[in-house]
Simulated scan of single mutants.
Amino acid sequence: MNGEEAVLAYRRQQVETASPAQLVVMLYDGCIRHCRAAQEAIAREGRDAAARHLLKAQDIVSELMACLNLDAGGEIATRLLRLYEYMYRRLVLANVRKDASAVREVEGLLVGLRDAWAQVASTPPATMQPASDRGAGPVA
């Protein structure tokens, strides 16, 4: 197994053994990483690279929207959906205009949400409500 294969195997294991909250944190981490890379690409006028990173960030925000359980999550899930929709629109606009300030805005929103989810993910399972009481899946 070469180095690249080892990294991929490690990442696969991380995903396969992660809790739903940890998976959401991983999504945030990836989206933040792509937002930062897009900003760097915009700064150096790498339009193609910026577009690739912004499209990946849009895909991740779409996945966060798809993960929402609006029935179980109630008002919080509905507000998150609205926020994700806003972020998605800002990323599309940033991609069309190569607008680093729009990407920075989305990154700031993501960092705040990521920190909150990281706290949830680090909460010991015994202190969390059982999954059967919450409904299926995370409320992302």
Score class of each variant (00 low, 15 high):
residue 23 L to G: 07
residue 89 R to G: 12
residue 52 R to A: 14
residue 93 L to F: 08
residue 37 A to G: 11
residue 128 M to D: 11
residue 76 I to R: 07
residue 41 A to Q: 04
residue 122 S to R: 15
residue 18 A to Q: 06
residue 32 I to N: 03
residue 78 T to R: 15
residue 22 Q to L: 06
residue 58 Q to C: 05
residue 21 A to H: 10
residue 77 A to F: 08
residue 107 E to T: 07
residue 55 L to N: 12
residue 72 A to M: 02
residue 134 R to G: 01
residue 29 D to T: 14
residue 95 N to P: 02
residue 79 R to T: 09
residue 125 P to Y: 00
residue 66 A to G: 10
residue 133 D to V: 10
residue 118 A to M: 07
residue 40 E to G: 11
residue 117 W to D: 07
residue 17 T to N: 13
residue 83 L to N: 11
residue 55 L to Y: 04
residue 74 G to M: 03
residue 90 R to V: 03
residue 88 Y to C: 00
residue 20 P to N: 09
residue 8 L to Y: 02
residue 16 E to D: 14
residue 12 R to A: 15
residue 81 L to M: 13
residue 81 L to W: 02
residue 53 H to M: 01
residue 98 K to A: 09
residue 72 A to G: 15
residue 51 A to I: 06
residue 140 A to R: 02
residue 40 E to L: 12
residue 114 R to F: 01
residue 121 A to D: 04
residue 124 P to M: 03
residue 18 A to T: 09
residue 135 G to P: 06
residue 27 L to Q: 10
residue 16 E to C: 02
residue 113 L to K: 06
residue 57 A to W: 07
residue 132 S to L: 10
residue 16 E to P: 01
residue 60 I to W: 03
residue 121 A to K: 03
residue 73 G to L: 08
residue 76 I to K: 06
residue 140 A to W: 06
residue 68 L to F: 04
residue 139 V to K: 04
residue 83 L to K: 04
residue 11 R to W: 01
residue 73 G to Q: 09
residue 52 R to C: 04
residue 11 R to Y: 07
residue 53 H to F: 08
residue 28 Y to V: 04
residue 29 D to W: 01
residue 87 M to I: 00
residue 75 E to R: 10
residue 92 V to D: 03
residue 31 C to T: 12
residue 7 V to F: 11
residue 5 E to C: 00
residue 111 V to R: 13
residue 26 M to H: 05
residue 84 Y to S: 06
residue 6 A to E: 13
residue 118 A to S: 14
residue 3 G to M: 11
residue 43 A to K: 10
residue 36 R to K: 13
residue 140 A to P: 03
residue 7 V to W: 02
residue 127 T to E: 15
residue 6 A to R: 15
residue 67 C to E: 12
residue 87 M to R: 02
residue 19 S to I: 05
residue 54 L to T: 10
residue 39 Q to M: 15
residue 70 L to F: 07
residue 74 G to Y: 03
residue 36 R to G: 14
residue 60 I to V: 15
residue 11 R to P: 00
residue 126 A to I: 10
residue 62 S to F: 06
residue 60 I to M: 09
residue 133 D to A: 15
residue 116 A to V: 09
residue 79 R to I: 00
